[in-house]
Simulated scan of single mutants.
Amino acid sequence: MDIQPNNPLHGITLKNLLEELVDHYGWEELGRIVNIRCFNSNPSLKSSLTFLRRTEWARKEVEQLYVDTFFI
């Protein structure tokens, strides 16, 4: 197994990352912080994961929010 000591996201799936952010902020606040439609209009884990997996810029914003929230 590769060890990546400088990567705080190593071993964290996108699903787990999103679930933790939703638990911490809730959909409404998450949608205010990262203004993407899948967080603001009928949000669901499935639709958000689909969008984030296809949209690199949005995934990077969500990943950065996770790092800023839980690692800084």
Rank of each mutant, 00 (worst) to 15 (best):
M1L: 12
M1N: 09
M1Y: 14
D2P: 11
D2W: 11
I3S: 13
Q4I: 12
Q4N: 12
Q4P: 05
Q4M: 14
P5S: 00
P5G: 05
N7Y: 07
N7Q: 07
H10F: 15
H10L: 08
H10R: 12
G11F: 04
I12N: 00
I12W: 03
T13Y: 08
T13V: 11
T13C: 10
T13R: 11
L14N: 06
L14G: 06
L14D: 08
K15M: 07
N16A: 14
L17N: 00
L17Y: 04
L18K: 02
L18T: 03
E19D: 13
E20D: 12
V22R: 06
D23Y: 10
D23E: 14
H24Y: 15
H24M: 10
H24C: 09
Y25V: 04
W27N: 03
E28M: 00
E28L: 00
E28N: 11
E28G: 00
E29V: 10
L30C: 07
L30Y: 05
L30S: 06
L30A: 03
L30R: 02
G31E: 03
G31N: 03
R32E: 13
R32L: 12
I33S: 02
I33D: 01
V34W: 04
N35T: 12
I36T: 08
I36K: 08
I36Y: 12
R37V: 12
R37T: 15
R37Q: 15
C38A: 10
N40A: 08
S41R: 14
S41C: 11
S41A: 11
S41V: 14
S41W: 13
N42C: 10
P43A: 01
P43M: 04
S44Q: 03
S44N: 09
S44I: 01
L45W: 08
L45E: 09
K46M: 13
S48G: 04
T50Q: 13
T50G: 06
T50P: 02
F51Y: 14
F51N: 05
F51D: 05
L52T: 04
L52D: 00
R53P: 02
R53E: 06
R54S: 11
T55N: 12
E56N: 11
W57H: 14
W57F: 15
W57I: 13
A58D: 06
R59L: 06
E63K: 05
Q64F: 05
Q64W: 00
Y66W: 12
Y66T: 04
Y66M: 01
Y66A: 01
V67I: 15
V67P: 01
V67E: 07
V67W: 03
V67S: 05
V67M: 08
D68N: 08
D68M: 02
D68I: 01
D68Q: 07
T69E: 03
T69R: 02
F70P: 04
F70H: 02
F71L: 09
F71T: 08
I72H: 10
